[in-house]
Every structure is written in C-alpha cells, then in structure tokens.
C-alpha cells in the first residue's frame, strides 16, 4: 500500500512538473499527495465550499541565509469540475514547502511596496495575498514567474485581475481584483509546493 501511494505520488509529481497543467488537480485528484505528506493541508470538497472573508494566515520563519521559497508560477482558472462554482489561483514554489502566507480583503489603498504608488485593479473586491519569506526572482535578479504572470487579467467570473505589487526584502505580495467581495479558501498542495486560493463566484 505504501509503495502504491509512493508510486502514485511520483507519477503525479512528474505529471504536474513536466506538463505544466493549466488546471490544477481537483481536490479529489490530490488525495495521494495529501496522504503522502503530513504537512499538506486537507482540501475541502468542492460541493461544500465553506470559505471565509476573514484573514487566513500561516506564519513560517527561516534561518538567515536559508534558501527562500521562490515563486515560479502563478496560474488562474475556473475550478470546481463539471459544475464550476469558484475560480482557482495557484501559486507554485520551488522547494519542498510553501512560505508563510496571509490572505485578506482590504478596503484601503493598494500600493506597490517600494514606490508607494497606488495600484488599481478591476472589480470591487481587493484580495491581498502576501507570502513571506519568499521571492519571485532568482539569485541573478531575473523574474521567475513569467512577465505575463506578474500582471494578468484572466477574465474569470470572480478573479478579474491579478497584479504582483511587491517582490522586495523577502516579501511577495499580490492583489487580486475580485468582481465582488466573496468567500475564499486557502489550501496547500505538495509536489510541487503550492498555495491554492479558491474564490467563490
């Protein structure tokens, strides 16, 4: 049993890493990797989307000079299988585990973290997603998520616009323009390490 689980996990990892799927595994698809890793969170079932509009936070600290998780891809698509009911945004990191994160709606001004310049996004809800310690560039100063991924307007039902507003001093922060403030849920996946944000329609 253990070996079958391992095989399943490896296959899944190869599939996800090698093919760069546009759609993340549905919660039911990811059972193997969840069971294989004690640290990954349990993904709620699609049929019972009980999200929240309150801040969701997980803290993580690293020793100085330990390698920081590097954000390498961001994908957005509709989620929920044959009868979709939410949009899913996936943040994929290098390394074995995701950084700390904090997700919350804001009603205040949204700013770029260095310049202080205001940033506006489509939609009436502004959802901030901050990762720390993390970076979205490599050690040679090149951006890791594609330039297109750092600012996109996916045109989904809930998630209208996704903008990277901070990649500075070990913090990576995004603002999601959401059609209207709606419940969300945050979960984690391993192989590769991902933070999954679902925003209800």
């Amino acid at each position: 049993m253990a070996s079958r689980t391992t095989v399943a996990m490896v296959v899944l990892a190869i599939l996800t890493a090698g093919c760069g799927p546009r759609t993340e595994p549905r919660p039911s698809d990811s059972q193997a990797s969840e069971r294989a890793s004690a640290s990954s969170a349990v993904i709620p079932q699609d049929t019972a989307f009980k999200g929240t509009i309150a801040p969701v936070q997980r803290t993580r600290s690293l020793l100085p000079y330990a390698a920081r998780p590097v954000l390498r891809a961001v994908r957005a698509d509709r989620g929920g299988g044959p009868s979709p009911s939410y949009d899913r945004v996936v943040f994929e990191f290098t390394g074995d585990s995701v950084p700390g994160y904090r997700v919350q709606y804001t009603t205040g001004p949204v700013q770029r973290c260095g310049s202080g310049d205001r940033v506006s996004v489509a939609g009436t809800g502004r959802l901030l997603v901050r990762f720390e310690p993390a970076q979205a560039h490599d050690e040679q100063g090149n951006p890791t998520p594609s330039l297109a991924a750092r600012h996109s307007a996916p045109g989904l039902t809930a998630v209208r616009e996704i903008t990277l507003i901070c990649d500075f001093e070990g913090q990576v922060e995004w603002v999601l323009g959401v059609a209207a403030q709606a419940a969300y849920r945050v979960s984690e996946l391993t192989g590769p390490a991902r933070v999954v944000l679902d925003v209800s329609w």
């Binding site: 260095g114 951006p143 500075f168």
Partner: peptide, 9 residues
Amino acid sequence: WLANPVSQV
C-alpha cells in the same frame, strides 16, 4: 534585482 526594471523597487 533592484536594478531590474521588472522589480519596481
């Protein structure tokens, strides 16, 4: 990174 225009910092 700070010298890269993508960083905006």
